[in-house]
Nucleic acid binder design. Structure first.
Lengths: 191, 191
DNA sequence: CATCCTTCCGAACGATCGTTAGGGTCTGAT
DNA sequence: ATCAGACCCTAACGATCGTTCGGAAGGATG
């Protein structure tokens, strides 16, 4: 794969994250590459392609992060590692993650459907962790695992809006995990 | 206030939420109003104005929702009601909330700074609830209230992406609250 | 040497963008 | 009957949009 092409997709992710897909023109991209705008079409067929490729890159990164979690661990431990994995991707590939989370809806045609399927599959992997945890007795039997999944994925997905680039995401994930597992209630709080 | 002007801002919020600010043209807005695009300038001075007014509307709605919470309640109860209030605004004014949360960054000049100040003030009101709760002993003394605030506001802010328009948000807020307060851990889970 | 591939230029295309201008129609109050 | 104001039209403006095209420089490969 040519170096120049990957430079372009990286720059595209950066600008799409900063100004939005529709807020970034081919001319902006060309200026960032130090090139005339017509020249970009030696590497791509359309502006949409750049969005699509960034989306693919994001999907690959998030799924790969989950793949790295050993499945012989306790469900609670896998939840903790999944949260770590997600936040690490957001922090280490902030531009790609931002486009993946915020700009995907400007995909056209069946590519939008492809994204939605990808995301649903990703969310399902999280939900499965909570379901298993409940069924195995690690989590409370009356747990609303739908709501728990929503809560965790919300925190994970919203992170791109405020995560400073050099955050220790493992520690942050563990702090979220601690609150999620044991709650915020005081030991002496009357019920 | 003329009816037509408020129709326009409502339609603008709808289209900005659906296609994004840069993805919505003045021509699109005119078509939605059943009018030629030049005619819109009898009501506004620029496209930016529409974004700005939607942002103001959102800020007002979110703050007003928090204002409705009595301050003589326990901190934990106020947290529960704050979560309810936020989700209710998101569900009842989904378009405005979406623009407020997602499209604000296309505000130009000092209007962007104005938004950020508004949002920081809003987040601070949430954080204060957790701080109070901890100091009053309702919440655990070792609580990381920064992380707790982040977790709750993430769930609240991300909701616009998946909330169906006719959800019972009070019940949903209570489910989030239950998880947040008592955690997901099983009663017999080994530490 | 000739050939290919990558990369870029310069110029242009039709379309669409946000905005402006001047004039017109209707309604309701004076 | 007159006037004001709200509302809209048509037409056009300069700018910018994404994309296409023919050509050319440079290096690597045969």
């Amino acid at each position: 794969m040519s170096t120049r092409k990957s430079e372009l997709t990286r720059e595209a992710a950066r600008l799409f994250a900063e100004r939005g897909y529709h807020g970034t023109s081919i001319g902006d991209l060309a200026k960032a590459m130090g090139v005339q705008k017509g020249s970009l079409y030696a590497h791509i067929e359309s502006k949409q392609d750049l969005l699509y490729e960034t989306m693919r890159e994001g999907a690959q990164a998030f799924h790969a992060a989950l793949d790295g979690i050993p499945d012989d661990l306790k469900a609670t431990e896998r939840i903790r590692l999944a949260l770590r994995a997600h936040l690490r991707v957001v922090a280490e590939q902030l531009d790609v993650a931002t486009v993946f989370i915020r700009e995907w809806r400007y995909l056209e045609g069946e590519r939008a459907a492809e994204f939605l399927a990808e995301r649903r599959r990703y969310e399902e992997r999280f939900r499965a962790l909570f379901r298993e945890g409940r069924e195995l007795g690690e989590l409370r039997t009356d747990l609303d695992d739908q709501a728990a999944t929503l809560l965790v994925l919300s925190a994970a997905n919203w992170a791109y809006t405020w995560l400073p680039p050099d955050t220790d995401t493992d520690e942050l994930a563990d702090r979220f995990y601690a609150i999620l597992v044991d709650g915020v209630r005081g030991y002496s709080t009357p019920v």
